[in-house]
Structure formats: C-alpha cells, structure tokens
Design a protein around this nucleic acid. Structure first.
Length: 197
DNA sequence: CGGCTTTGACCGGCGC
DNA sequence: GCGCCGGTCAAAGCCG
C-alpha cells in the first residue's frame, strides 16, 4: 500500500464529532484549519452526531486552558485540539473515544502515527466496511476505526480510542513553532519544562 | 525474509 | 436460551 505523504488536500473539514464515554465529562473542542499558505483560522464546530455530543465551545481560547490538559490529533491538514475541562487530564486515558468526520477521497489519513490493520468488518445498515487499526508502537494500545459514512461515502469517519503513550514520529510543539504544520506531522503539547530560553 | 494486509473464524455482549 | 452483531485473532498470502 502506498503510504502517500500528503493527504488529500481537497478534503474539507465538516463537523466534529463526539466522544463516547459514560463519565459526565464535558469536553470543549476547537479546531484549526491550516490552509495551504499556512494561515490559520478558528472554526466553531457543529456537532450533529446522534451520539453523545461534545460541547463545541469557544474556539480560539486556547490560552485559557492548561496545555497539559489538551490532546491534539492531526488528520491530514486538520489539527484538532481537544481541551479537557474540569482538570480532566487523567481521563484522557484508554477508553476515550473521539471521532472525526471528514470529506476525503482517502480511506486513511496520515496522522503521523504508524498503524497496523488487524481487522475489517462489514457493518449492518452500511454498504461500506469498517477497518480496524492498532498503533504499531510497542506497548501502545491505541486503536482507531475507519469507515465511510453510510449516507455519503465521500465522508470518512475516523474514531480514535485511547491516547498514545509515546510521541508521534513527527512532532511539532505548538508553543515553540508557528501553526504551520506539514502534512503528517503531529502537534503536541510540550513537556512540562517551565524554563524556555 | 520480515513486516504488513487479508479474511474467515471465533468470542462476548446484548436484545428478544 | 438463542441468534445477531461488532470486535479481535491468527493463519496464510503478498510485497518490497
């Protein structure tokens, strides 16, 4: 399979999603849309999932939230910043599910991590199969599911479960670098070191 | 030859 | 209790 370094540049961010969790946690989500020329703009997300919906809160207030309570997922040219309220850092562990729905021709968008496919299932009420992936990193048990939207197969739904216990092969720390992220690079909060020279 | 994908089998949860 | 369905396993095959 050709691991193309560039995700489909024509994919458009559509809507965010949801997380499935029994805990009464409130998540606040924002996204950054990285354009080809590197400029960025904030977008308030709309949640239209029938599942539990995350509070799509105030985008652009990233400075108000401690960096270490964020999780960042990069899908192609899109960077999703998930901010935990309630000091919920510990809850970002295994079991959390975050899904993204994007319009893309590609089945699997490059998010900077290496995945190993371990299953494929046809789902009831959907003409499209669902693919199952595990993170290839030893000791990391993060999983993701990839399937096409059953109502509009031009959309891809990617669901992440768990949090990586390692850094992405490609990382750009977002308080040290401008938000110009090459495709395939992951954005991650910097380690807790207060001394930045 | 090693790593990855494919694919059918198997298993557990859940609803009836 | 039974059957359906989603998720995972693992053997075989493929490809670089």
């Amino acid at each position: 399979m050709d691991s193309s370094p560039n995700p489909n540049p024509n994919s458009n961010f559509t809507s965010l999603l949801y997380h499935e969790n029994d805990n009464p946690f409130e998540f606040e989500l924002s996204d950054y849309f990285i354009t080809d020329d590197g400029s960025e703009e904030d977008t308030v997300l709309e949640s239209n999932s029938p599942e539990k919906v995350i509070d799509g809160g105030s985008a652009g207030s990233t400075s108000a939230t401690p960096l270490d309570s964020m999780q960042v997922i990069v899908l192609g040219n899109y960077i999703f910043i998930i901010k935990c309220k309630n000091g919920a850092k510990k809850e970002m562990g295994t079991g959390h599910r975050v899904a993204f729905r994007m319009q893309s021709e590609l089945e699997v968008l490059d998010d900077g991590f290496k995945w190993r496919k371990y299953g494929k299932k046809s789902v009831k009420n959907s003409p499209n199969p669902r693919n199952y992936y595990k993170c290839s990193n030893v000791g990391c048990h993060v999983k993701k599911r990839v399937e096409r939207d059953r109502e509009d197969s031009s959309y891809v739904i990617t669901t992440y479960e768990g949090v990586h216990n390692h850094e992405s092969p490609c990382i750009v720390y977002y308080n040290r670098a401008p938000l110009i992220i090459p495709s395939g690079y992951a954005l991650q909060a910097p380690p807790q070191s207060s001394s930045s020279h």
